[in-house]
Design a binder for these strands. Structure first.
Length: 429
RNA sequence: CGGGGCGUAGCGCAGCCUGGUAGCGCAUCUGCUUUGGGAGCAGAGGGUCGCCGGUUCGAAUCCGGCCGCCCCGACCA
């Protein structure tokens, strides 16, 4: 992709509406534009990141045995009356009527919807377990949206739902998701701490929030310092171990009964990027999702729900990975892997070397954004650092003449000069 | 929802106190020069001063109402 043709409206200065670093950088890097409070349009660069994050989530869900579906954003109020949540949810739920005067709502979550689908088609324990998820836009009419896409009203969320015959199966599903979440966040380059959490509107009695630590985090969190050395690759054995180490959000943390010695207790701020719940038969009983067991007994299925804030992750990753010059994308979600900088557009040798490099990278299936604009070097460096692509290939007139290119790593700032072939080999790996 | 702040060109801001018909930087367009970390000079275009009403000969400026956005808190995932 050539930057001269790409829609990338970067801002040199911080818009005053944006206060925290991820919000500023997303606006400056031309990733999003605000439509109204807590509602955003995603521009090409932002969309690429959003979709890449969604793809990582999707791959890990599929690997964990879940199946993707796609449920509507708009739901009938009637469904929520059946679960008893229609009145309980309050003003956070966006409600309206269609032309037939039927009460509708823009879904803030989908427990009712998935349970209805499930109950209409599954009648036997033999069809269990099942775990269905979708990645869909949600709307919660927050009193006070803030922090850019991290606390928007409209947001993209992966929400999954498990169905089991009994508690033993449900807990197994829960732990399976627990592990899948550890893997997902690790792939996104994040260290997420699972914490005991409140079950809120969803209800239920077993719940973990996955939090990443950041000064701009919304909630205060407390945890055993054992989590500070948490770096090992996720493994099934870690589930029980991590669930046994103390970590809790402020609602769940009680200094009086906290089992962790004061000198081991860490206190920080966290951004919630995932939340899993076991809630048993809360919705299956209310909505009549009943299956018949091996002994002929009929019981409501045991369920849990599992959310990951996909659009929130875009901001959260930036909070966790940036410097004074801009964003530093982890490879797994970077909108392009390589930023190719032509330092002197119009110079025959430069143009040719850059054209060949772009073509070679594309052939090798390495995504590349080629800055072919007639701009000064400084502006190009600044833009490339701002948008945070992991690698920069820099080609100036002298290097082009000599058949050399410069390779710069955005994260470390390390540069080296090498042949185009050698650079290609490094980037294609 | 309580408290606070802000709305003036695409972005960042000044002007408002003390009314006289709008200005600066960046960005944009043209030309020349420049060319490895957001260039220089010269010129040009671009604004219902958030909206409605009031006061006044005259309102960006004073008064009233409304709307929007941001921050702190409460709330929430």
């Amino acid at each position: 992709m050539r930057l001269s043709e790409y829609f990338l409206p970067v801002l040199r200065e911080n818009p005053q509406e944006a206060q925290i670093v991820s919000h500023r950088l997303m606006l400056r890097a031309g990733m999003v534009r605000q439509s109204s409070a807590g509602i955003y349009s995603w521009l090409p660069l932002g969309t690429r990141v959003l979709l890449r994050i969604a793809q990582v989530v999707r791959e890990e869900m599929d690997a964990a045995g879940c199946q993707e579906v796609l449920m509507p954003t708009i739901q009938p109020a009637e469904l929520w009356r059946q679960s008893g949540r229609y009145d309980g949810y309050g003003k956070e739920m966006l409600r309206f009527r269609d032309r037939h005067d039927r009460e509708m709502l823009y879904g803030p979550t989908n427990e009712e919807q998935i349970t209805e689908i499930f109950r209409d088609s599954v009648k036997s324990y033999r069809d269990l377990p099942k775990n269905l998820y979708h990645i869909q836009w949600k709307f919660r009419d927050e009193v006070r949206p803030r922090f850019g896409v991290m606390r928007g009203r409209e947001f993209l969320m992966k929400d999954g739902y498990s169905f089991d015959w009994d508690y033993v199966g449900a807990k197994k599903s829960y732990d399976n998701m627990f592990l899948a979440y550890l893997k997902t966040f690790a792939r996104l380059g994040l260290v997420a701490i699972p914490m005991r959490a409140d079950t809120g509107q969803i209800g239920g009695d077993l719940s973990h929030e996955f939090q990443i630590l950041a000064e701009t985090g919304e909630s205060e969190v407390f945890y055993d310092l054992a989590f500070d050395s948490l770096r090992a690759a996720p493994h099934p054995d870690m589930v029980a171990e991590l669930q046994s180490i103390y970590a809790a959000t402020e609602e769940k943390h009680d200094p009086a009964s906290c089992p962790v010695a004061p000198e081991r207790l860490r206190r920080a701020r966290g951004i919630e990027i995932g939340h899993i719940f076991y809630f048993g038969t809360k919705y299956s009983a209310a909505l009549g999702a009943i299956v018949t067991g091996p002994d002929g007994e009929q019981r409501p299925v045991e369920s849990g729900s599992y959310g990951i804030g996909v659009s929130r992750l875009v901001g959260a990753i930036i909070e966790a990975s940036h410097d004074a010059n801009g964003i530093i994308w982890p490879d797994s979600v970077a909108p392009f892997k390589v930023g190719l900088i032509n330092l002197k557009a119009g110079d025959a040798a430069c143009d040719r070397a850059c054209g060949e490099m772009e073509a070679a990278l594309t052939r090798a299936a390495v995504s590349v954004l080629h800055d072919d604009r007639d701009e000064r070097a400084g502006a190009k460096f600044a833009t490339m650092d701002l948008i945070g692509l992991p690698w920069q290939v820099i080609i100036g007139p002298k290097a082009a003449q000599a058949g050399r290119v410069e390779l710069k790593h955005r994260k470390t700032g390390e540069r080296q000069e090498l042949s185009p072939e050698a650079a290609l080999q490094r980037l294609a790996g």
